[in-house]
Structure formats: C-alpha cells, structure tokens
Nucleic acid binder design. Sequence first.
DNA 1: CCATCCGGTCCGCGTTATAC
DNA 2: GTATAACGCGGACCGGATGG
Length: 298
Amino acid sequence: MLTDFNRLKVFYTIYRHKSAAAAAREMYISQSAVSQSLGKLERELKTQLFVRLHKKLVPTSAAGRLYEIIEPFVRNLEGGLAWLEAEKSGPRGVLRIGAPVEFGSRNLVELVAAFRKKHPAVFFEVALGHPDMLLPRLAAGELDFIFADIFPGRGARNLPPFTVSPVLKEKLVLACSAGYYSARLGGKLTPAALAGCEFLDYSQGQTALLNWFRHHYDKSFPGLKAVLTVESVQAILNAIKGGLGLGIVPEYLVEAELKAGSVKAVRTGRPELLNRISLVRLKGKAAAPAEKAFLENF
DNA sequence: CCATCCGGTCCGCGTTATAC
DNA sequence: GTATAACGCGGACCGGATGG
C-alpha cells in the first residue's frame, strides 16, 4: 500500500532542509504538524528516517534511499505542472489524429503545415486507416479525434457515443486516359462495356468502385477486374494517366487534364458521387487547447 | 444500471500549549 | 529545534435516495 503523498512531500522537504522547522516554514504549516507527519511516515514504513540529535535531524541511509526514489518523481511532477500552466498561454503538445489514407496524406498534411506556422509548439501523430480501425482507437483514448469517410460499420455497435460533423465534400469521378477511353469506350458507353474494363482501386474490397457503380446505375457490378490496388490517390492518378485503366479520383485533382482532354471522366448524366469527410469526436470529451485551436481552424 | 447528490459519521490533520 | 498531549474542524467515506 502506497503511503499518503502529502507525508512523502513533508519528508522530501525536511530532507532538503535537514530541518523540520525550515520545512514547516516552506510549507506554511506548523513545526508540530511536520514532526507528526514524519513520525507517522516512519511508523508506516517501520523504518527510522532521521536520528534525533539535540535540535537537529540527521538522515539515516534509509532516508537517503527514499529521497532518491522521490526526487525524480517530484521533479517530473513539477515539470508536468509547469507544462499544464504553460499550455494555458497557448496550444502545445502532441495531437493524435486518425484519417482515411487519401485524406490524411493530402488534405490533412496541408492543414497540419498551415497550423504549425501559427502554433509551432504543437506536434502531430497521424494514424492512417479505415474508420473501422480508427474508431476503436478513438474510443480507447489513443486518438484525439479522427476524420472518417464511411460511417459507421456494424463493428461500432458497442462503442461509446460519438459526435459527427461534416467538414468536406468532394466530387469523385471515374476517369481514364484519353487513349484508354477511345480504345475501350469510344462511342459505346454502356454499363456492360464499362464493367468489362480494367480498374484501379484503393482496397481489395473495391469499396470505392462499388460505391461509384451503385451510385450511378443503382445496382452492383460484381467481378470488376482490378489490375491495380493501391492506397494512394497519387498512384491511382499516375496509373490513370499511364493508361492502365479506370480509377476513381477527386475531380479537382484532374481538372486541368480534363480541360486539356488528356484525361476523360465517365459521365452518366447523374451528379457525381460525393466523398463526404466527417470529423468524429468522442461525445462529451473536453478538447485540450491544441485540439481546440486546430478544430477552430476549420 | 450507473452516476450524482445528500446527510450523517468518523478519522486524521494541523493547531496551540507545553515540556525537554 | 523537536516531541507530545489535547482538541477542533474539514474532508473522506458510506448508505440511501434520486434521476437519466
């Protein structure tokens, strides 16, 4: 059983001054209180900590050992409390953020860069991955907040309540190079012709592709041929330009190529599929200053 | 079921006074 | 300067009530 911390603090102060009276003055309590506290600690530990000479306290070797144990702890504690105090004057510390791979490596990194210009004492740890993996980590307090595109899976049943606020919508287009378009789809843009093409996707499950097809044709197209699977928008983009097949990318990333005609987007007449990114936080969790400042930047 | 509030009880801390 | 006795007060703890 750990002894009362206040008694250890009294001991620590006596040891530093080698005097109960001086410790009492420093701690703004009576000399009597210090003496009683020390006596109690010695009885608890069943160890003599000071030899009482006339008007003098001489530490025993046990006292020296105890001081060595307590001293780093007190130093840490004082440092920690100073840190908490400093935090009031401005955001600092580490922000742990979860995000989908594409959003995290593109938009989030830009946000972090802009934020750090204003608040250089804030550092970032970004975990990239699927919301199904990030939500439990948010619930366990390992992440301060996350960004999520799909929300939520059935696996999130027994997780604590979250607050979800939309932060971004971007149009997603199914695109390929102009060469690929004229060779494989020229003049016959039917669902069947489309489904027979080569595809580029972000995950083994082809969630992005399947969503696109469901959105535009109201039915699923099983057995799409994925010739490349990679968790990187940049890679998909390069593969599209290289004529490898059809891939889904945010429209604004290929705006120039679409205008120039080097990249073609598959248009069905329906509005484009939207990628909705939401901010997900633990309900009722107070935001630390760094977190608050970051979220206010939105 | 869990968190919170409330009233009552009791223990221990810190005080003063005093002895050494 | 330190230790001890006596004492008052605050806070910790407990059981029960209440509310979401």
